[in-house]
Simulated scan of single mutants.
Amino acid sequence: MTPGPAALKAVIFDFDGVIVDSEPLHYQAFCDVLEPLGLAHSYDVYVERYIGFDDRDAIRAIFQDTGRPLDADTFERLLRAKEEAFQKIVARGVVPFAGAKELVEELLRAGLPLAIASGAKGDEIRLILQGLGMLHAFSAIVSADDVAAGKPHPETYQRALQALFSRHPALRSNPATDGSSPQGVVVIEDTPTGIQAARSAGLFVVGVGHTYPVSELYQAHWAVPRIADLSVERLRDALLRHEP
């Protein structure tokens, strides 16, 4: 028998481009590191080609696209340099997207477990969330440090789902099973790459048009222009309207 629509039971957020407008900061950090090598590029190119990647895959892709060899020592040095550059930029202050903090607080009041599944570094995510007073809100954070393959591979979302089930056993559709069903768990994403990763993990995806126009988020089950357009009620309605 085909299951009916699921009730909302948890939300997984992407981080960059969903909660905070940190993509321009990542771009600046990449430019600081790559410009001396003659590998800097415009922000438009960053958005078109590299924005959905974690740092590792972005650096590999940049070198591959320019036909430049990338040895292991240079790769590790650039990773460290980019992380240090980003932390210096973040220290100047980061502002969340309008409505992001309010949505997180509303979800918490509704008793819904929350997680983050991001291609950013874990220390960077926690540093920003701590500064925004939001670190306590997320019972699980899966970052680039925790996966072997970044988005669009589904591993980031698979691990976030596993972490939520581990920390909140009541989320399982049937506690007697392994709790692997993603029904009722909603993802909020801003890039086609991230949407692909979440859908490959079997999750219901809501796109927000912070980074790409809504028309380019067509792989999401539902998309809105801004995270400020979302609420607990609207997420519940969207999930209930979806035919599995």
Rank of each mutant, 00 (worst) to 15 (best):
residue 18 V to Y: 12
residue 19 I to D: 06
residue 20 V to Q: 04
residue 21 D to A: 14
residue 21 D to K: 13
residue 22 S to R: 08
residue 25 L to I: 13
residue 25 L to W: 05
residue 27 Y to G: 08
residue 28 Q to G: 07
residue 29 A to D: 03
residue 32 D to H: 11
residue 34 L to R: 07
residue 38 G to K: 02
residue 42 S to Q: 07
residue 42 S to P: 02
residue 43 Y to Q: 06
residue 44 D to W: 01
residue 45 V to Q: 07
residue 47 V to N: 00
residue 47 V to H: 05
residue 48 E to H: 09
residue 50 Y to K: 06
residue 50 Y to N: 00
residue 52 G to M: 03
residue 52 G to N: 00
residue 53 F to A: 02
residue 54 D to A: 01
residue 55 D to E: 15
residue 57 D to A: 03
residue 57 D to I: 03
residue 57 D to F: 03
residue 58 A to I: 04
residue 59 I to R: 00
residue 60 R to V: 07
residue 60 R to L: 11
residue 61 A to S: 11
residue 63 F to I: 00
residue 63 F to G: 00
residue 67 G to L: 06
residue 70 L to K: 03
residue 73 D to A: 15
residue 75 F to K: 05
residue 76 E to Q: 13
residue 79 L to N: 12
residue 79 L to D: 08
residue 80 R to F: 12
residue 80 R to Q: 13
residue 82 K to P: 00
residue 82 K to C: 04
residue 83 E to P: 06
residue 86 F to T: 10
residue 91 A to P: 06
residue 92 R to S: 13
residue 95 V to L: 13
residue 99 G to T: 05
residue 100 A to F: 01
residue 101 K to R: 14
residue 101 K to M: 14
residue 103 L to H: 01
residue 106 E to Y: 09
residue 107 L to V: 05
residue 108 L to V: 14
residue 109 R to K: 15
residue 110 A to G: 06
residue 113 P to K: 05
residue 115 A to C: 05
residue 116 I to W: 08
residue 117 A to D: 03
residue 118 S to R: 04
